[in-house]
Design a protein around this nucleic acid. Sequence first.
DNA 1: CGAGGGTTTGAAGTGCATCAAATAGTGTGG
DNA 2: CCACACTATTTGATGCACTTCAAACCCTCG
Lengths: 241, 241
Amino acid sequence: MADNDIIAGALKQSVLFRNCDDAFLSDLAGNSAVKTTEKGQLLYVSGDDADRFYIILDGWVKLFRETYDGTQAVVDILPAGHIFGETSIFEDDCYVNSAEAVEAGKVISLPLAMLKSHINDNPVFAREMLKSMARYRKQQDQELEHRTIQNASQRIGCVLLRLADQAETGEIKIQLPYDKTLVASRLGMQPETFSRALSRLKNETDIVVKGATIEVDDLDRLVDYSCSACSSEFPCKDIFK
Amino acid sequence: MADNDIIAGALKQSVLFRNCDDAFLSDLAGNSAVKTTEKGQLLYVSGDDADRFYIILDGWVKLFRETYDGTQAVVDILPAGHIFGETSIFEDDCYVNSAEAVEAGKVISLPLAMLKSHINDNPVFAREMLKSMARYRKQQDQELEHRTIQNASQRIGCVLLRLADQAETGEIKIQLPYDKTLVASRLGMQPETFSRALSRLKNETDIVVKGATIEVDDLDRLVDYSCSACSSEFPCKDIFK
DNA sequence: CGAGGGTTTGAAGTGCATCAAATAGTGTGG
DNA sequence: CCACACTATTTGATGCACTTCAAACCCTCG
């Protein structure tokens, strides 16, 4: 019962479901469950038969692809509020990548079948789904561009900018939301490279690094340094948030 | 009139429109036009107001992003039959990248407004659109993985495999569909790197390179070499075709 | 034939990866 | 509250992959 309230609340707040009618949402919530995750717990593996999708309540979730020899390519790291696993309905009901909880947290597990039929029965919702896919597509395009054009330090700068509260003025404090090692993998680089690239960024833009906290005195300098190698308007919105 | 037939034919063959009813298709065709393109001709530029989308009749089209300083990141290179520019309806009716004809060819220019309203009025078509976006999303995920995990030679090998006619057995002949320089940019590498990486691939897998023609004697060897660094099943389908 | 673009080759530099080891930071049990 | 264990992070040394700049070569087409 309490769970159902939590689930209903989470659905109401999600971009995808916020405009759905209450009847559907409570039906969906009734067929869903809150699941507690531990650090490193696998939620599904690429190739698995897909019958559930997820919304993150708490903690971060890493999506990744893995080759035979164990090499990982991190596709994305998603914050609370995000949905994942939902695109498998377009992929023969198989998961196309693997998902792992980065840390202890909570996710809601929801039935894919209901999502599928709701898309089929409800054109307005289908359009929401389209919008959500379009948003993702744009992010991926941007990501690919960044990997092609930006160097390690610039990519880190870009992350910092997207983590920075745009409303703030003057001295800005940024908290890295998770391990530096994980940020590194999200950016497609090694931890050692991240460390060195961050200190290069420090020299170039006079940011102050104190562990996981980073203070930016002159935001424009950081923008100049990072965004000069990016075709998008500053800031590269929506990628990290 | 002849143009209308050509357009109707192209629509009927496209994955996205093939199941649409004839009334809509002829209406759409009536508001469309065949456009002849010259080598290097820009079809639209990132940020432009979007009111048309395109289907390629003949020739190749390059989608790319460009920074202030002119550095290009090639997003994709599309063959005849492909649709592009259509996702701008989800992006404030702005093009999010730029499109350029690689060579002399023909494209159909179609009105975005009609696509938009057809999606809104026709749930079945909306689902087709969803499927098409899902396909693209998968490709992009794969692309990002390749860039992260595969080296230059392996990425070239992957391209060759996708260009190879899977039906063929024994000695396989592959024709590069466009300039090596362009293939290189599509793979995010320099022409010089492409040249050297191809000759490395030649040494590793005993393929025979004669200009733009490549003969593969032992396909499995090429698969071993390239696909060992890829999480997808061989072959990485649909990316080039 | 000659001009011009595409392609290859050479030499040198840069950036990132890798391996190894030191250091900092965190949580645990005593 | 401290010491230990363990993990995250940094630093150093070295190697490899790709880029860059320069020049030669090759191919095509007017």
